[in-house]
Design a protein around this nucleic acid. Structure first.
Lengths: 225, 225
DNA sequence: TTTAAAATATGATATTTGTCATGTAATTAG
DNA sequence: CTAATTACATGACAAATATCATATTTTAAA
């Protein structure tokens, strides 16, 4: 397994604020893991004693609602860290993480990080900053969820995936999700999600072959009432 | 103005992790402020260079949605800190804070706190912990908003206020909100909020005299489908 | 490859929620 | 104290969304 200090992933997350020495120590104790599509990385209620660093692939962070439906709270891609909250809290995790495609990850035990968290202010500030940002995003999502229609939310998630995670060479969204996944991101019934995507297709806003979706008319999506 | 070190408020927030010396320095530079009911403490888009410490009263943190409606994201009472995010980010605040009744607050400039944030790991960890907790709460709210009916959400906010902020000697919720506030917490139209509260009243789940609301049948609220 | 299972699609219908209209009660300004 | 404004209430209706039923297509397992 490659060393953390040479891993480009660290450019994307808080680990970039660790010194060379710290990174080497972290590297020595990290565990590489492969997850297959659909596999559970951790589940709501588990105690996760460390952080997962995503080297490749995408996963969803979701939470089971009392009505039995999953709600996706966040998508995490290369460079993201899972389980930050476990660093500062003894509580069990409130979210489940499930791989959306094949993933490569590193697991870094909490004990290793804690040392740096108490001694390297730059690193701590960075973790703090990331968490503050997550919080801002979460507030934003809350407002969207509360105030916008399902159609609008669907349009926005499509644009979000397009903008933040990019497209493949043919212009298709590089993150592939099932209609059920879309439903549980947008917070609606699967049938409704299907219906809305069909409608977008009819209106020429998107095109789709199976699960692969391409945005054809970004502006109309953006300005749709 | 009293000194921070003798202020009981510090027991409730991150400031408790500051040393006696640090608290004295903070105390020396803080500014006491009084806000009247309805007054704006800060507004979305402003740069707030510090944190507000709530000594008395209640305020709402809200965000304006694109549809022109406000969405309340959090209620903050005695012991809460506003503007934590400003400590770690240069960005403008994403939320507005408005007093729900007369409030007493202390403002502590960012410059003072920053010193402690970089030198006192215990304090930093505490801020981190608080932010992690906010994040957890926010995720929770997101799921509720996405998956539960307006009626259910209303029942839950009533129970939340009851459990977390308490009642007065007559059993009425100690936080007094307008129906419009309830609507913008629950994320619905004002008329819908009014209608649901009326319905709860008819069903004997709550009683209300004007804005004062008392929970009469907690269990039915809790188990309501 | 064949077949069973899962995902997608769509109609019909019920339920929830929003909007507009209008009236009454409660607050607040003068 | 009174007038005027704002908050609350409720009906009627429209729009959005969920649910149930049932094909059809796609995917995965044997």
């Amino acid at each position: 397994m490659s060393k953390c200090e040479s891993c480009i992933i660290k450019e994307f997350n808080s680990l970039k604020s660790l010194t060379r020495e710290e990174l080497m120590r972290v590297s020595a104790c990290k565990t590489g893991k492969i997850y297959r599509k659909g596999q559970v990385i951790f589940e709501e209620g588990e105690t996760i004693n460390g952080v997962y660093c995503v080297k490749d692939g995408v996963c969803k962070l979701s939470k089971l609602s009392e009505n039995g439906k999953d709600q996706v709270v966040k998508l995490v891609v290369k460079g993201g860290l899972l389980g930050k909250r476990s660093l500062v809290s003894e509580q069990k995790t409130n979210l489940s993480a499930i791989a959306l495609n094949d993933m490569e990850m590193c697991f870094i035990p909490k004990s290793e990080i804690m040392n740096d968290l108490s001694k390297n202010p730059k690193f701590t500030m960075d973790v703090l900053r990331e968490m503050a940002n997550d919080l801002k995003d979460s507030d934003e999502s809350l407002v969207n969820m509360a105030q916008k229609s399902v159609k609008r939310r669907m349009a926005e998630i499509l644009m979000y995936i397009h903008d933040d995670f990019g497209t493949d060479e043919d212009g298709y969204l590089s993150i592939i999700l099932s209609r059920e996944d879309y439903a549980s991101i947008v917070g609606t019934a699967t049938e409704s999600a299907i219906r809305i995507l069909s409608q977008f297709k009819k209106e020429g806003l998107i095109s789709a072959t199976g699960k692969r979706i391409k945005i054809e008319d970004y502006n109309s999506l953006k300005w749709m009432e």
